[in-house]
Design a binder for these strands. Structure first.
Length: 244
DNA sequence: ATCCGGACCA
DNA sequence: TGGTCCGGAT
């Protein structure tokens, strides 16, 4: 008896109606055209640079990554430079970011790409997933940013937006939640998904934040389930902001 | 003191 | 599936 408990899926489907998605998409796209943040890894389509950035960005705030990323590319401007690096120096460079295993993973990543792919970063999600330190999020981030592939991503920012706006209830580990992945794919446009992904990331980081979301200034609040249901906190915020 | 965040391994 | 890895923000 596997197919019996289908309720969450049905709820999700009913909340993800086409009209609401269209509205969501239009509002967010407009927001994105004027609010996207400017990071150095967003000014390149060099797949190596993007691979490096995505490694460093895992579980790490983008602002703290910036100086390390710049130093990294200065010291190891190409994949070939990276495989020739000393692990100690590489570790030292990445140290301020914590999560020390990343130096090794990134290095192994580079080595495998040299050895198995002739130094060319693989451009398929499936191949990227086999590299150390690259999971579903990172693989799809690379595919959408570096190779312009129409692949949606789901990180905690995206998950939070989807849960709040569409009233979805994800599992504790969002990255493994099928409903949220499905929702992320459903709401993605069929063109310019790379930019769309960035829009969601930035919107989650700047407006639909984990703590103290800016519901009063949110272009989605009119149709957001979260605003409707919010008991205390956001009411207070809405109230106080309406007084200024 | 506690929260926040991807990949990986047990 | 749940614990672990880290620093920074609050």
């Amino acid at each position: 008896m596997k197919g019996v408990t289908k309720k969450p899926q049905e709820n999700a489907a009913s909340n993800l109606d086409a009209v609401k998605i269209k509205w969501f998409h239009h509002r967010l796209s407009t927001w994105g055209t004027q609010n996207l943040r400017d990071f150095p890894w967003r000014q390149t389509c060099d797949s190596y640079a993007i691979l490096v950035a995505e490694h460093l960005l895992q579980k790490t705030d983008a602002v703290t990554v910036v100086p390390i990323y710049k130093a990294f590319l200065f010291k190891y401007p190409t994949l070939e430079n990276l495989v020739k690096a000393s692990i100690d120096e590489l570790s030292e460079l990445l140290k301020p970011l914590g999560l020390y295993f990343r130096a090794e993973r990134l290095y192994q990543c580079a080595r495998i790409i040299i050895e198995q792919y002739g130094g060319k970063i693989p451009n398929s999600e499936k191949q990227l997933l086999e590299l150390p330190g690259i999971g579903k999020y990172t693989a799809r981030a690379i595919c959408s940013q570096a190779f312009s592939q129409p692949l949606a991503v789901l990180d905690t920012n995206v998950a939070r937006i989807l849960e709040r706006f569409f009233g979805l209830q994800g599992e504790r580990v969002k990255s493994r939640c099928k409903i949220l992945w499905r929702a992320a794919e459903t709401i993605a446009p069929d063109k310019k998904v790379g930019k769309w992904n960035l829009t969601l990331l930035d919107f989650g980081a700047m407006v639909c934040r984990a703590k103290n979301p800016l519901c009063n200034d949110c272009p989605l609040s009119a149709k957001c389930d979260y605003v409707q249901i919010q008991p205390n906190d956001s009411k207070k915020i809405l109230l106080s902001s309406s007084l200024k």
